[in-house]
């Protein structure tokens, strides 16, 4: 497919990532089971009258998208594509509670409107007056990668020159407690906290002075075994005319549960001589946490530097050219993403 350049990035996460000059040098160590994002002051981005009905996810999305566009010096993209695992779950919980507690009476529309999964992309479009292509993906841990793949396709088809791609998930209040309890009943539970965040990127067909890197390829795989994923990975690299030895950094979505064996096999068997990176201990696990990993990878390529907080081993390289990301959730929703310096 045609070249795609990452020209702008933005992150709202449980670390101080909204400040573009910081790159995980000083990190917050989270020990609780759930962690909220460090929210910027949304009044800097959203006027109070428009913002008063916005869900946390929408606010995060609007602020992060503004920053991602600004960092690429772009006012309005040709298309907006988002991913979310749970949508604005706080509002879904609120509407569900009202239905149950009031026996379907006295319900108001706001929390219902915020519960539609496309509400973030829609409200960004409304804010930017962007009438172009607009789609939202909701496929668990490949929600963000699905959005990214669509963006790459749009550029390839010459249907757009600049695409705003992003991912948003809220921690919420109730559903997450149920998830935490189910997780605790597992034999080897997720060890990282559960988190939330918004990550947006400006992806363009042309390179700029400030470009972060180039997006080479994405692959989404529904089902794989810890063994077959290795074959999938080699095939993926092969399609992109790369050898295993061409990969300079591997970014893994480890979260401590029993499915980390998917990562361990790759670490041990394929990538034991290159820098290995993890990130979910910093941002928490959520369906679009891999977008935080993507944000880390874009920064490594631009800054040519790996912060200590994400290192899984002590290997360093003088130059980082190809970064490969791999993520999965509970043995499904696998994705490979390949980034190259530019």
């Amino acid at each position: 497919m045609k070249a795609c350049f990452i020209n702008g990035v933005a992150s709202i996460s449980a670390q101080a990532t909204f400040n573009q000059s910081c790159f995980l040098e000083d990190v917050i160590v989270h020990n609780s089971k759930t962690i909220n994002a460090i929210h910027p002051n949304y009044k800097d981005f959203i006027n109070p009258i428009t913002g008063r009905r916005m869900a946390t996810g929408v606010k995060m999305g609007i602020a992060a998208s503004k920053l991602a566009l600004d960092s690429a010096q772009l006012a309005c993209p040709d298309a907006i594509i988002t991913g979310t695992g749970m949508g604005c779950i706080e509002d879904s919980e609120k509407f569900l509670n009202s239905i149950i507690e009031n026996d379907e009476q006295y319900l108001t529309p706001t929390s219902f409107i915020n519960s539609t999964h496309n509400t973030v992309a829609a409200q960004i479009a409304l804010t930017l007056d962007c009438k172009g292509y607009n789609v939202s993906y909701v496929h668990g841990s490949v929600s963000f990668e699905s959005a990214l793949y669509d963006a790459q396709l749009l550029l390839h088809e010459n249907e757009a020159s600049n695409v705003l791609v992003g991912a948003v998930d809220e921690l919420g209040n109730q559903f997450i407690q149920d998830i935490v309890i189910s997780e605790e009943n597992q034999s080897q539970a997720i060890l990282t906290p559960f988190g939330e965040g918004a990550h947006f990127f400006t992806i363009s067909s042309s390179r700029q002075d400030g470009s972060y890197c180039e997006l080479k390829a994405i692959q989404i795989i529904n089902i794989a075994t810890p063994d077959s994923i290795q074959e999938n990975l080699k095939e993926f690299l092969n399609q992109n005319r790369l050898l295993l030895s061409d990969v300079d950094v591997i970014v893994l979505g480890c979260n401590g549960d029993e499915f980390d064996c998917y990562y361990h096999n790759l670490q041990r068997l394929l990538f034991d001589t290159i820098p290995q990176i993890h990130y979910k201990h910093l941002c928490g696990e959520f369906f679009t946490a891999s977008a935080f990993g993507f944000w880390v990878a874009t920064n490594i390529l631009k800054k040519q530097y790996i912060p200590n907080s994400v290192k899984l081993n002590n290997v360093e390289k003088s130059r980082y050219k190809n970064v490969l990301l791999y993520n999965q959730f509970k043995g499904r929703q696998h994705s490979f993403t390949l980034l190259t310096s530019c």
Partner: peptide, 9 residues
């Protein structure tokens, strides 16, 4: 087993 995804607009 390969590419699957879900859209919600």
């Amino acid at each position: 087993t390969q590419y699957i995804t879900t859209i919600s607009t």
